[in-house]
Amino acid sequence: MGREIRDVLLRRILEGKYQPGDRLVELQLAAEFHTSQGPVREALRELEALGYVETAPHRGTRVRAVSPTEMRDAYRLRALLEREAAMAAAQAPDPDWEKMRGAVAGIERAAAAGNVRGYVRYDEMFHRTLVAQSGSPVLLRHWDLLLVPTRILVVLRSGVVDVATIAKEHRPILEALERHDAALAGQLAYDHTNRIAMRLGP
Rank of each mutant, 00 (worst) to 15 (best):
residue 62 R to I: 08
residue 63 V to H: 01
residue 64 R to H: 08
residue 65 A to D: 09
residue 66 V to F: 04
residue 66 V to Q: 03
residue 67 S to K: 13
residue 68 P to K: 10
residue 69 T to G: 04
residue 70 E to L: 12
residue 70 E to W: 15
residue 71 M to V: 10
residue 72 R to E: 07
residue 72 R to T: 09
residue 76 R to M: 04
residue 77 L to T: 08
residue 78 R to K: 08
residue 79 A to Y: 13
residue 79 A to Q: 11
residue 82 E to D: 11
residue 83 R to F: 10
residue 86 A to Q: 09
residue 86 A to F: 11
residue 88 A to P: 00
residue 90 A to V: 11
residue 92 A to G: 02
residue 92 A to W: 04
residue 93 P to R: 09
residue 94 D to F: 07
residue 94 D to R: 03
residue 95 P to F: 01
residue 96 D to S: 15
residue 96 D to V: 12
residue 96 D to Y: 15
residue 97 W to L: 05
residue 97 W to K: 10
residue 98 E to L: 11
residue 99 K to L: 08
residue 102 G to F: 12
residue 103 A to G: 03
residue 105 A to H: 13
residue 105 A to Y: 10
residue 106 G to Y: 11
residue 107 I to S: 01
residue 107 I to N: 02
residue 108 E to H: 06
residue 112 A to E: 10
residue 113 A to T: 06
residue 114 G to N: 14
residue 114 G to R: 08
residue 115 N to S: 15
residue 116 V to P: 07
residue 116 V to Y: 11
residue 116 V to A: 12
residue 119 Y to T: 02
residue 122 Y to I: 03
residue 122 Y to R: 11
residue 123 D to Y: 08
residue 125 M to V: 05
residue 125 M to G: 04
residue 126 F to Q: 02
residue 127 H to K: 04
residue 129 T to I: 05
residue 129 T to C: 12
residue 130 L to A: 01
residue 131 V to C: 03
residue 132 A to V: 10
residue 133 Q to I: 05
residue 133 Q to D: 05
residue 134 S to F: 02
residue 134 S to Y: 00
residue 136 S to E: 13
residue 136 S to Y: 05
residue 136 S to G: 09
residue 137 P to L: 13
residue 137 P to T: 09
residue 138 V to K: 13
residue 138 V to S: 15
residue 139 L to S: 02
residue 139 L to G: 02
residue 140 L to W: 04
residue 142 H to Q: 14
residue 144 D to Q: 08
residue 146 L to V: 06
residue 146 L to E: 10
residue 147 L to Q: 12
residue 147 L to Y: 14
residue 147 L to N: 12
residue 148 V to R: 03
residue 148 V to M: 10
residue 151 R to K: 10
residue 152 I to C: 04
residue 152 I to A: 00
residue 154 V to F: 13
residue 154 V to I: 15
residue 155 V to D: 01
residue 155 V to P: 01
residue 156 L to W: 14
residue 157 R to N: 15
residue 157 R to A: 15
residue 158 S to N: 15
residue 160 V to D: 13
residue 164 A to N: 07
residue 166 I to E: 00
residue 167 A to N: 04
residue 167 A to F: 06
residue 167 A to P: 01
residue 168 K to I: 05
residue 168 K to A: 10
residue 171 R to V: 07
residue 173 I to N: 04
residue 173 I to T: 03
residue 173 I to Q: 00
residue 174 L to V: 03
residue 175 E to I: 02
residue 176 A to F: 08
residue 176 A to H: 04
residue 178 E to G: 12
residue 178 E to K: 11
residue 180 H to P: 06
residue 181 D to F: 13
